[in-house]
Design a protein around this nucleic acid. Structure first.
Length: 488
RNA sequence: GGUCCCAUCGUCUAGUGGUUAGGACACAGGAUUUUCAUUCCUGCAACAGGGGUUCAAUUCCCCUUGGGACUACCA
């Protein structure tokens, strides 16, 4: 039996979770689920200088919001922990000593200044840059002397010369490097922390990772990793490098060019399932023409072979469209809490209204919204009388004739018993017929009077929901408004 | 500079050694609708360029061009 699939998402807690990172996590998740495998979260916090307060919490929150719950990782021990690299320092130390002992690695006592200068010279001479192996063949005495005097050192891997390093990328096929273009990379920094390369290889091995699915910026590091696995005598996992996500102008996606973090999308009124679905389709497709796909469908259809090697531009318009599709199809109840938060955020006081009333508003609005924020931004008239009227619409609809018609409508409304949408519709149609005009002649001024705007849900539904008293009051206000304008 | 990766409508993509190169978003028209939105119909729009291989290349190979990544004691 084949060993079970174990994959990991390994973010660095240096800031918010970017959609590119989220997409990597999502592919790992889908791959794990597809193969009944294990999705592991590992935190790569081996750079003390880049620690960002709160980043870890945001990463957890973002992943959970998107539905990417990890099977193993922080808060979910699976026997391979700890899953936070800063808590595994002793492990990296132990393994680097093995390499030192076996002659695959060496201590380098060069100062950072010398390395910087070396690189500057190499760049100036347009030579390939890289460490010049100065400390590679230090004598035992020299090493002992440095150690005795407490000279800071790093541990470097000895890259063999003249070797072809070949690995198979599941998405691109064979990729070949000459070991001669690789320099002796640092494994352990002078502060005792491991570099990404060291921690990544050791942990992937110790955590029995079978497939490494990560961003394609790691392709160039992979041959070094392969050599490191070799130095340890370990079999490397399978590799698949995922294409990066670009912003519409072709560059990297960044906060400046709109939303970039997962939480920005939450704040922007997107549904997690819509973002999930959209992200899944960025760089991958099921091979047929399906686009809106449930989680189960995505899992069933997912395969690495279908992942494109080409980087993709993040098209927020298409995300909006997809969000609108999900929004329209979602139960209003499931939207209520989020809408309440959004209303509160916008200082729209809905506390005087029942949940049933709010649910009706959501039901009416969601089908014509693309984001959750559209629902709350365009529903103010359900909670308060309009204070002004859309200028363009008013110019067209609020004529003296309309004032008269509105008066007639109000008289008729005052006499109605049940104030339901269908009753109101009958009333409007009868009224229009008796006056020999189209219902539009009544509806447009009435809509503007009641909502202050010219677009929105069906007028009769709005009227039924806000109720007879409010409707009549608003129409009266509008009549007064028109008359006062005329008298000027 | 060096190494590596990538290349189908504006965008996301399907696709095959022989197809009218398909779908979706966006955009433009039109129909339906009390408005908006939905829905429906129609339109616009792509195989980067040049060489090969082949009876036949969008598809396979090479080059060019363009884009990107890496080239840290960052990940």
């Amino acid at each position: 039996m084949a060993e079970s699939v174990r994959v990991r998402f390994a973010p660095s807690p240096t800031g918010y979770l970017h959609v590119g990172g989220a997409r990597s996590a999502l592919f790992n998740y889908l791959f794990a689920r597809r193969h009944n495998g294990t999705f592991i979260l590992r935190i790569e916090d081996t750079d003390q200088t880049r620690f960002v307060e709160g980043a870890l919490q945001e990463i957890y929150e973002s992943l959970k919001w998107l539905g990417l719950q990890w099977d193993e990782g922080p808060q979910a021990d699976g026997g391979c922990g700890p899953y936070i690299q800063s808590q595994r320092l002793h492990i990296y130390k132990e393994y680097s000593e093995k390499l030192l002992g076996s002659g695959h690695a060496y201590r380098c006592f060069c100062t950072p200044e010398r390395i910087t200068q070396l690189r500057a010279e190499q760049e100036k001479a347009k030579q390939p840059s890289g460490y010049d192996k100065k400390c590679r063949n230090l004598s035992d005495d020299e090493i002992a002397a440095h150690l005795a005097s407490g000279t800071p050192f790093v541990v470097r891997l000895k890259i063999p010369s003249g070797r072809k390093v070949v690995f198979t990328d599941k998405i691109r096929g064979a990729i070949e490097y000459s070991s001669d273009v690789l320099d002796d990379l640092v494994l352990i920094k002078s502060d005792g922390y491991p570099t990404y390369h060291m921690a990544n290889v050791v942990d992937d091995h110790l955590m029995n990772i079978t497939h490494v699915l990560r961003g394609d910026e790691w392709i160039a590091s992979t041959p070094r990793h392969v050599l490191l696995y070799e130095a340890f005598g370990w079999t490397p996992p399978e590799f698949a490098h995922l294409p990066i996500i670009l912003s519409p102008d072709g560059g990297k996606l960044s906060k400046r060019k709109g939303a970039a973090s997962v939480m920005d999308f939450k704040r922007g009124g997107f549904l997690p399932e819509a973002l999930f679905n959209f992200l899944a389709l960025l760089g991958w497709s099921p091979g047929d023409e399906r686009e809106k796909m449930s989680l189960k469908e995505l899992i069933d259809a997912f395969s690495l072979e279908k992942v494109s090697p080409k980087s993709a531009v993040f098209d927020e318009q298409k995300l909006e469209w997809m969000n609108g599709v999900y929004l329209a199809g979602k139960n209003s109840d499931a939207l209520l809490d989020d809408c309440k938060d959004l209303w509160a955020e916008r200082k729209i006081d809905v506390s005087g209204f029942s949940d049933d009333y709010l649910l009706s508003v959501i039901t009416l609005m969601k089908v014509r919204s693309r984001r959750l924020t559209d629902i709350v931004d365009n529903s103010f008239y359900f909670f308060a009388d309009p204070l002004s009227y859309d200028e363009k619409a008013a110019a067209k609809q609020f004529t003296s004739d309309a004032a008269f018609v509105l008066g007639v409508i109000n008289d008729a409304l005052a006499g109605t018993g049940s104030f339901t949408a269908s009753e109101i519709e009958t009333l409007f149609k009868t009224l229009a017929e008796s006056r020999g005009v189209s219902t539009g002649k009544l509806i447009h001024p009435a809509r503007l009077s009641i909502s202050g705007v010219s677009a929105g849900p069906g007028l009769y539904e709005i009227m039924e929901l806000i109720g007879k008293d409010s409707v009549i009051r608003r129409i009266e206000n509008a009549i007064t408004h028109i008359r006062s304008k005329e008298s000027k």
